[in-house]
Design a protein around this nucleic acid. Structure first.
Lengths: 197, 197
DNA sequence: ATAAAAAGAATGAACATTCATTTTTTGAAT
DNA sequence: ATTCAAAAAATGAATGTTCATTCTTTTTAT
């Protein structure tokens, strides 16, 4: 067990270093040697844990995505109403993106560049299923607009990535008020409009 | 004049090649030699037009951004109503992102990675001023929610980038209906809600 | 004939990956 | 419990390639 423990630590250190360096320099501008340095490991050691650089970044991506969705759905329960469920998931995601900015930035960069293999990308998408199920139910109940999941995502969840990037660049500060406004915008853009608020 | 003409063509070819290669491989995975090849030019020639690789990508970014905003605001007129002006700009932007996908993808990649110098990034932002002015007017008139420009952008304009990426990956096809739905979502998320539709 | 533009080859640094060796761990035998 | 040989893990140095940039020469335009 001691052996396995040690290995797990090194692996985690490598993944952490990858995230930090890729965030600051981009994938192709982060040499294996720097990743090794930051993880206090020899460059050769990386190859005991990962096949090569591509494999390292693919695995990192999938793990971070899993961590992200685990957090997002942790307090969600399928018995909740659609409104409540959406609000809860949305706010958990916002929370993650602001608190765990390093991880969120890494995902944003991977999702907007050609560094990740298509198969790993697909792998990452699977984790979103609970949200898609919620929307499906919302559409059946006439609460969510009958729009493609891509549109729903684009107008409710994805904007948080843009806000996170802006905040990270120091362009502005997302406070409680901003977040509530953002949530209302998200909800207004995907909900069915009727006489009730 | 013939000399200058020739130079302009080469410069354009270099910028075009840069966009295409960076879109497919990312900045750091596109060698100067490939850019030169695609532009039918010797690698050394690039250095007659640009200081170095960083300068090449910075200048490309600013030029593409300018082309993007020129297109977005081409049919806009400050005398229009806020509603009309927003709809028009939004639809021009959508048009650009879908028709001139290469350029739009390039911008998306630059905006989500650390490849562009901060000064060039600032330079690119300036071009958005007409839209910010429109929003400012909309807020005064009580038509647009009194939200930060970052929030307004995140929920109305930026989602188009996500949709473009999804389409580019073949995940789904944005047709006329989708676009109208997207526009309604965008507008609903930033407009002040009242009794009228 | 001269100056600018372009080219291709050359240079030197950076890097991913592998290799040969050393260190650590393991678990069976004492 | 301790020893020790075998296996696993880890390392630092070596390898070979790729690439940005520069240098020298050739081509083109005036």
């Amino acid at each position: 067990m001691a052996k396995l423990q040690k290995s797990k630590d090194k692996r985690n250190a490598l993944i952490k270093a990858t995230i930090e360096l890729v965030n600051n320099n981009g994938f192709h501008a982060t040499p294996m040697s720097k990743i090794a340095n930051m993880a206090n490991v020899s460059p050769a050691t990386i190859y005991l844990y990962f096949e090569n650089k591509q494999d390292l970044v693919n695995k990192t991506y999938v793990e971070v995505k899993a961590k992200y969705t685990d957090y997002a759905f942790e307090t969600y329960d399928v018995d909740m109403s659609v409104e409540k469920g959406f609000e809860l998931i949305w706010k958990r995601i916002a929370d993650f993106k602001l608190k765990d900015c390093e991880n969120a930035m890494f995902l944003a960069q991977c999702d907007n560049t050609p560094v990740i293999d298509e198969t790993s990308r697909q792998e990452g998408i699977k984790h979103l299923q609970p949200l898609l199920d919620l929307w499906s139910r919302g559409k059946k109940e006439g609460i969510i607009k009958p729009m493609s999941d891509y549109l729903l995502y684009a107008y409710s969840i994805n904007p948080l990535s843009f806000l996170m990037m802006s905040e990270k660049r120091g362009a502005f500060k997302l406070d409680k008020t901003h977040l509530e406004e953002a949530y209302q915008s998200a909800w207004n853009s995907i909900r069915v409009m009727n006489e009730s608020s």
